[in-house]
Design a protein around this nucleic acid. Structure first.
Lengths: 238, 238
DNA sequence: TAGATTGTTAATCGATTAACAATC
DNA sequence: TAGATTGTTAATCGATTAACAATC
């Protein structure tokens, strides 16, 4: 069993060496990855409240999932617990950081400095430790050269040079839908490895660039479905 | 088969009567509902380009899923197509609108008038036809009584009275995490039927109120995972 | 009628949950 | 050692895909 497991090592800024294994060349399913940030959120909170251990049972009750799922998820990465004891809260938190890659800086640029762009940039600036906004870009002459959180807003014509010069990891798209694909193309050409897309369109992106969509309008419409359903139900009961 | 199907009817503003069926009392799975807004987006685009019909095959190639899935999804609601022909683009679009409940107005309030709150309010104002922002609330005295898109920003102390007076369907939370649960409690007490939550926390909400979370930080962290992975791979290949 | 494409059933795949032996 | 809780295998559940008969 252990023989076809590959060992991974991640060196933290602090020098701390994190080791974890991944079986064979298995891809970890996206549904598992999507749950990790959630686990991380709860663990971070737990670290402020108590130290030491937590069992999959306790954690599952907090989060609202099954203990089985938690153990199953962590075992994709080799298992972080100890029988009869549970999981060490802080080390579990660090393990998740290691898996998610939160052991280095990610440089981002934001394309589109409207309300949404500013909100996202501000969000990163305020909450996300390992991420920095290196540049913001917009088409509107009246806001070019103003700045937000100390980041100057540049004209979109400067994007290519900017990307060529700095090593940007992630491009954030907060433009109107009509300009999103074009923005994506330039970001890809400029060498970003990930795109965080807030425009309500599906982008065409090469295989080796990761895309994460935040389709807030889709989210609102599915909310409408449930709101409408409960209200129709109530109407029917009257 | 058809005997255990319930007929649903939705009367549009225009007087148009939409009819669709749902088998027995089956709950439609959340994964299906989540896909409807996406189908809708593509259909809306199609309506601008061509009229008449589209087959599940064509649509699947556009969207990037299987034709089987599309047919399977629509058949949860009774089937909207015609053998040998396909689906009528416009009527399919209307059917989806009907299912999602986009046949009436939804009144919303936004709690938190920071960058994010303004962005969301502006988004609704600009893009979402059936949704209106009736009020915005914040704690910071310096912005109270200013306005955004013609909506006055009120102090949070006014929330309860405001909700009691107007019939608000959806509460939108864009406060910092620390205040999100409190905001949710007041919204629930005020009778909203849905909560659209942008704070990076999981809210405790009664069963009969729908919640849709937009956990953008979770989304960013899972993007980091994939970015880190491709970059580690490239490093390994060098 | 022949061709096309749905609606629907059956087969497959993957994800979740349950169970329990291993072990701290 | 006894009790607790993991790691892991097996069973279940649900979602996706394939296949094809029904039918426009």
């Amino acid at each position: 069993m252990l023989f076809d497991a590959r060992l991974f090592e991640t060196r933290f800024f602090t020098g701390f060496l994190l080791r974890w294994t991944m079986k064979g060349n298995e891809r970890i399913s996206g549904t598992v990855i999507k749950r990790l940030p959630r686990y991380r959120r709860y663990l971070e909170e737990l670290m402020h409240k108590k130290t030491g251990r937590i069992s999959s049972g306790e954690l599952s009750r907090l989060i609202g999932c099954t203990a089985s799922q938690i153990r199953q998820d962590f075992n994709n990465f080799g298992g972080f617990g100890q029988q009869g004891y549970g999981y060490n809260i802080e080390s579990l938190y660090q393990q998740i950081n290691g898996i998610l890659g939160l052991v280095r800086e990610y440089k981002t640029v934001v394309i589109g400095a409207g309300n949404l762009g500013l909100a996202v940039a501000n969000y990163i600036y305020t909450y996300e430790d390992g991420f920095t906004v290196a540049g913001m870009f917009d088409v509107r002459p009246e806001i070019i050269n103003t700045s937000a959180n100390g980041v100057r807003i540049r004209g979109v014509s400067e994007i290519d040079d900017f990307l060529a010069e700095k090593q940007i990891d992630i491009g954030i798209i907060t433009t109107p839908s009509a300009n999103a694909q074009q923005a994506a193309d330039r970001l890809v050409k400029g060498g970003v490895k990930g795109i965080w897309n807030f425009a309500p369109v599906d982008l065409e992106i090469p295989e080796d660039v990761a895309v994460e969509n935040v389709h807030i309008s889709d989210s609102l419409l599915s909310l409408a479905y449930y709101v409408n359903k409960t209200q129709s139900q109530q109407d029917a009961e009257e």
